[in-house]
C-alpha cells in the first residue's frame, strides 16, 4: 500500500460524492454527498500527514470536521425551512428562479 493507493481512494470517494451530487435529487442526500466529499478530503489529508510525517494534516481533519458539522447544522436548518415552504425536497422541482 503506497501513498498513491490512499490518494486514489480519497479521490475516488471525492468523485463519488461529486457524482452523487449531480445525480441525486433529494436535498438531504445532497447534504450527504457533500459530507462524502469532505471526508474524502480528510482521508487525503490524513494520508499526506502520514506520508510527510507531520501533525498538521491531522489537525486539519479536526478543523474540517468541525466546519462540516457547522455546515450540516446550517444546511439541515435550511433544508427544513425549505421543506416547510415548498413541501418537497426534490431539487428538480424547485426551480422558480431561472433564466
Amino acid at each position: 500500500m503506497t501513498l498513491y493507493h490512499f490518494l486514489g481512494l480519497g479521490l475516488l470517494l471525492f468523485a463519488i460524492g461529486a457524482a452523487g451530487f449531480v445525480i441525486r435529487n433529494n436535498a438531504v442526500v445532497l447534504l450527504l454527498c457533500i459530507e462524502i466529499m469532505l471526508n474524502a478530503v480528510n482521508l487525503i489529508l490524513a494520508s499526506f500527514a502520514r506520508y510527510l510525517y507531520g501533525a498538521e494534516g491531522q489537525i486539519f481533519i479536526f478543523i474540517i470536521m468541525t466546519v462540516a458539522a457547522a455546515e450540516a447544522a446550517v444546511g439541515l436548518g435550511i433544508v427544513i425551512a425549505l421543506h416547510r415552504g415548498h413541501g418537497t425536497l426534490a431539487m428538480n422541482r424547485i426551480k422558480d428562479l431561472k433564466g
Partner: peptide
C-alpha cells in the same frame, strides 16, 4: 445563455464540477 440557466441545481453543480 439564459436558457442554459435552467434553475435546476444539478445543472449548476455540473457546471461547477
Amino acid at each position: 445563455l439564459a436558457l442554459l440557466q435552467t434553475g435546476e441545481l444539478r445543472h449548476y453543480a455540473l457546471s461547477i464540477l
